[in-house]
Each structure stands twice: as structure tokens, then as C-alpha cells.
Design a binder for these strands. Structure first.
Lengths: 344, 344
DNA sequence: ATGAAAGCGCTAACAT
DNA sequence: ATGTTAGCGCTTTCAT
């Protein structure tokens, strides 16, 4: 492996000049630059990452903590990961992947100066990792919004707005009784940031619009989906007597990728037509919305976009020394075949 | 950040002693070791990864190339990735994730000494990355089996055996006409290693057992699955006349996670009972086999296991200087509700 | 069983 | 516009 000195020798310049043509941190005359570049390519020179990190305190590596927690759809995780990796490469960085959800991994790579910055996924409301993150030298950005983001940058879809948007659209379509088939119980129990925010938004909009909402967590299995559908559609007595329940929901929001196909199958089994009898809005990645038995009206989860923004934010703090900030991406609803205004 | 000298000072020893208690490369008296460990923990010392890499030519990082190619199920990819990361941590290594499928990324991290070893996923029969991989200083292991593995270690499920096993099981169950609903056309066109090997095994066993096989690639969409099912079940004339076709297949092998639910839905729509009218064997991760509308007889894709083995193999070459080798994991079939012996 | 010292390959002052 | 030089923090001979 040739070193910077080999290149310098070959180009007839000093090592620092080679370093500077590489970094662009000072101006180099055209002829010198060419000789250096020539030498670099004929020798096939690559700077040694460790030496560089040691001398410059910069690794050009971003740490990405992507815990694979149960109940979280991996394809959604992968979208975020892809966004992070892709954008990182755009700004000349690589990504070190951590999948354990303990705080130890982060400390290790941060204290060991393996990374310049850290992106953390799957954030919980009172995430236990936050105190550690705040002590790190490296800037951190969370994908998700904890209760106390103080000192940490955050970026996420505005899930609460997504919940509102879904409920409101059902209201606009003429639905009065609506249900949210939400994240798996375990995800909600963990107080995963996005899961509870959707519920809050959905409930809030329902209250404001005078809707009767039902919210049911849902295991991401065929049985779980069936049970959730039972609960959502209300199998009990209704509409008569003092303890009268509201009518069967006609509008359904599904925030659960894995359960989605089973929910649709369940509706079909009951002979309920979508969108005729029941309107369905999915909150999921666009590609899963369109690859169901019928194309679903949906609110997209722009994972790649958000992953990319996370990198931009962390780089801004790294380069510009910007203070921490939070960014919520506005949700967008795409009308497809699973909803239609109700004729009432 | 405290350095090794700070620790040495605090413990009243030399820096090399600290280094040696950390590496265990020479014996240290109990009292000295204790004073050093004490100093390390009170100072919160962590060796600087770059300095270490520079001095030792070891990064303790494994590069993982996991291209996210279209048509490949991300949840399957994630299983492999998880296996790699988990096992890497067991042997005190971290993982640098590359998702671009160009060869540039590998060269960069290898030549830049960012990684000690490389694991490459999604290997094609005549993979264009192989020549580059063979030139690297770092040992490489492929997850997949190219035509010319010479000089490179490989590990994978024995997909050909999986294809055989599925066909043979259908034969044993009394099926004569069988179909394989395979990977997406794009995956096959790319000559993705696993996709064609399954086909070969399936065809081979069918020939030996006197089965009439049909093989149809399948887009991982509802429509694609429907079309594939049309093709597989043969919509044309049959059983009479000179150009007589064979009978409608009664045994189906599905090697396509995304299409699976739609294939099952398609069968149901046609009024075909599983396993009564059609036996179905899926080649997919165990968890997707059991989360369909009925639990499927399946051949598991042990992604985590294989990812872990890949790491073990690459470490063996790194530490032991072992020569390259190939390892194929024997497939296992788990009987569930989607197959049953034919009464016929 | 421990220390001293020479690098590992690069960057970034400090020169000119 | 370019060269000189002093580290960055560690590992690992070579000594004792």
C-alpha cells in the first residue's frame, strides 16, 4: 500500500502538498495539482482511514443505531437505513451499523472515536438512551420525537398530524364512527414515539370533529389482525338501550404494515366492501399501500427522505456547529381506491 | 478524552503496560493489572480506534455489502444483516454497511483500510464484483455461490437442494404435476445465484421423479402473482388431442415472499382448497411461513444463521489464515398445514 | 514482569 | 504557492 510520502516523492512535492490537493484546504497551482493527481492514480493511493482519523479527529463515519425491535416492520426500518446510507455517501461519509438496542454500543463507538456523529432510530417517549447521548462529544440526531428532546436534534414524520389527517379525511368523507387499527401492543407498551403520536392525533381530530373513535392495538399476525378487526368493528350489542354503543365504524385507519393484508382479508370475509361499506386509510410506505389487494388511500411514511434529512442535520451540526433543532415532516395523504365520499 | 498515557500515569506504569493489559498479549502481575484496570475505569478510558488501526493494522470492523436490489425481499436481507452484525459483535467487531451495489465502495473501504474483512451479499452467477474482491488484501466471504468461487469463501443455503427437496416432497405426497412460482423476473435475469439454483434443483428432481414441472417467474405484486398463478395452473386446453398438455398442477412451490399472500389469495378465489386441491410449499423465512392465512409447509431460509457463519468464516481466514472454502447449509423442510399426502 | 522508544500515515500549524 | 515539522494515540519490538 503506497503512503502519502510515496505519492509526494513520485510527484516531486512534499507530503503536505499531497494532503492539500486531497482536502482542497489551500490553493494549489494547476501543474502541481496535476502531477499529484497523476501520481495518486498511477500508484493507486488511498489515504489510510485510521491515520487520517488520528491526525484530524475526523473519521467520516456516521454511527447508525437501528435496533430491530419486535413489532417494527423491517422493511420500514430498511427505508430509513437506506436514506441514511445514501445521503451519507453523498456527503462522503460511511455508516457504521449498530443493531443492539443497548446504550453500550453507542458509548463504545463514540468514546472510541469510531464515528463523527450518531443517528438513532426507534426512539421511545422516555428513551433511556437519551441521557447517554447528551453526554457524547459527537452530535446526535434522533429519528423520532421523545418527550424531552432538549439538547438533541430530532427529525420525524409528524405522526400526530398524520393521525389527525387520517381522521379528518374520514370525517370529510362522511364517516361518523371511525377506528384506528394501530401498532402492535408491544410497540405501544414501549411507548414508541411514533405509535403513540398517531393515536393522539387520531383521537384529537376525532374529538374535534365529533367522531366516535375506537383505537385497537394489533398484533402483526393473521389472528391478531382478525381479533383487532373484531374489536374495531364492535361485536357487542349496539344502538339500543341505555348503555347504547355507537354504530359499527365505517372508516378504518390502519397503522400496521404487517397486519394490513389480513385486515383487508378480514373485511372481505365479512362481506364488507372497500370502499363501499368501509373506507380504509393506511399509514405505511407508499409501495406497500399500492401492493395490497386494492390500492389503498394512504399517508406515506417517507423513510428514505427522513433518513436523508437526519444525515443533513447531523452534518450541519458537525460542520456548522448549529444548535440542536427538531424537524417534523408534514404528512401527505394520497387518495386511492380504498376511500370514497359516503353517500349517506 | 483520556489517552493511554493518562492511564499509565494514573496507574504508575508505562503506556506499553496499559496496552498489554488491554490486549492480554503478555502476562501482567495481578497487582499491576488491577491498578491499571482501576485507572481505566475511573478515567473512563477508551482506546482511540484510529490510533489503534494505525499502529496495529487492524480496525476490528467488517465491511458488509448489502445491496438493496429491486425484487429482493428486504426482510430477508435484514435477517442476513442481523446475523452478520450480531456475530460480529460476539467477536468484538463492528460492521460498516455498504448498500450501493457498485464495486467502488468495496475498493474504497478496503484500500482505505477501514475494514479488516468483507462480507458480500446478493451474489450473481457471474458477479462483476468478484475480480475486484480477489485483488483485495482483506479476506472476503460471499453469501451466495457464483460460478467461479475460486479464491473466495462462500456460504449459502443449498438452494439447489432446497428446490430438489420441495419437488421431492410433492412427489412423495403423490403429486405428478408441479409448479414453481419463483423469484421476480428481474432477479432471475440478473442471474442471482439463489434464484437460479432453486430452479435447477426443482427441475432436476422433477426430471428424476418423473414429474411434469412448470416454472414461472413472478413479480412481487398482486397482479404479478395472479398472472404467475394463471401461467402456473395453465389456463389453456389440456388433456386431449395430440398437443395434449399435462394436467393442472396440484403441487406448488413458492419461492417469493412478497408474492406469497397473493398466490394464496388467488388460489382461494379460484375455489381451490389448500392443501385439499393444491399442496403448497414455501421457500421463505420461517416467520413469514407461519404468518400467512394458513401455516405453510416450508423450507426455511436461515438468514441469521448464514450471516453468522459468514462472519465466522471471514474471521477464521483473518486469524488462522485458513484458505478459502465454500459451505452450503442443508435445507430443512417443516411440515405445516399447506401440504398433505394426496388420496387420489 | 515491565519500560523505552520507534514508528504506523496522516493533518495542520508554522514557516517562507 | 509550497515545504518543514510536530504531533495525533496507539502497538510492538527491543531491552532489562
Amino acid at each position: 500500500m503506497p503512503t502519502i510520502d510515496d505519492v509526494a516523492k513520485a510527484a516531486g512535492v512534499s507530503a503536505s502538498t499531497v494532503s492539500y490537493v486531497l482536502s482542497g484546504k489551500r490553493s494549489i497551482s494547476a501543474p502541481t495539482r496535476r502531477r499529484v493527481e497523476q501520481a495518486i492514480s498511477t500508484l493507486g493511493y488511498r489515504p489510510h482511514a485510521g491515520a487520517r482519523a488520528l491526525a484530524s479527529s475526523r473519521t467520516n463515519v456516521i454511527g447508525l443505531m437501528a435496533p430491530l425491535r419486535s413489532g417494527v416492520d423491517v422493511s420500514v426500518i430498511m427505508q430509513f437505513v437506506t436514506g441514511v446510507v445514501t445521503r451519507a455517501r453523498d456527503v462522503d461519509h460511511d455508516v457504521l451499523l449498530l443493531t443492539q438496542d443497548d446504550t453500550g454500543g453507542i458509548e463504545r463507538v463514540a468514546a472510541g472515536s469510531m464515528v463523527d456523529a450518531i443517528v438513532v432510530m426507534d426512539v421511545e417517549a422516555d428513551d433511556t438512551r437519551l441521557p447517554v447521548l447528551r453526554t457524547l462529544r459527537q452530535p446526535t440526531v434522533l429519528i423520532g420525537l421523545p418527550h424531552e428532546p432538549a439538547g438533541l436534534s430530532c427529525v420525524d414524520l409528524d405522526w400526530e398530524a398524520a393521525g389527525r389527517l387520517a381522521a379528518r379525511r374520514l370525517a370529510d368523507d362522511g364517516h361518523r364512527d371511525v377506528a384506528l387499527i394501530g401498532s402492535p401492543p408491544e410497540v405501544l407498551d414501549r411507548r414508541t414515539s411514533y405509535a403513540e403520536r398517531v393515536v393522539r392525533g387520531f383521537r384529537g381530530a376525532a374529538a374535534e370533529d365529533g367522531l366516535t373513535p375506537v383505537v385497537v392495538p394489533c398484533e402483526p399476525t393473521p389472528d391478531g389482525a382478525r381479533r383487532a378487526l373484531d374489536a374495531a368493528l364492535g361485536e357487542g350489542p349496539r344502538g339500543d338501550g341505555p348503555g347504547a354503543r355507537s354504530d359499527r365504524p365505517t372508516g378504518l385507519v390502519v397503522h400496521n404494515e404487517r397486519a394490513l393484508p389480513h385486515v383487508l382479508a378480514g373485511l372481505a370475509e365479512r362481506g364488507l366492501d372497500v370502499p363501499g361499506d368501509v373506507g380504509v386509510i393506511a399509514i405505511c410506505p407508499g409501495d406497500v399501500a399500492v401492493s395490497q389487494r386494492l390500492p389503498l388511500t394512504s399517508i406515506d411514511i417517507p423513510g428514505e427522505l427522513i433518513g436523508g434529512v437526519a444525515v443533513d442535520m447531523v452534518m450541519a451540526r458537525l460542520e456548522g456547529g448549529q444548535p440542536a433543532e427538531s424537524r417534523l415532516i408534514a404528512p401527505e395523504l394520497t387518495q386511492r381506491a380504498s376511500t370514497t365520499p359516503r353517500v349517506a
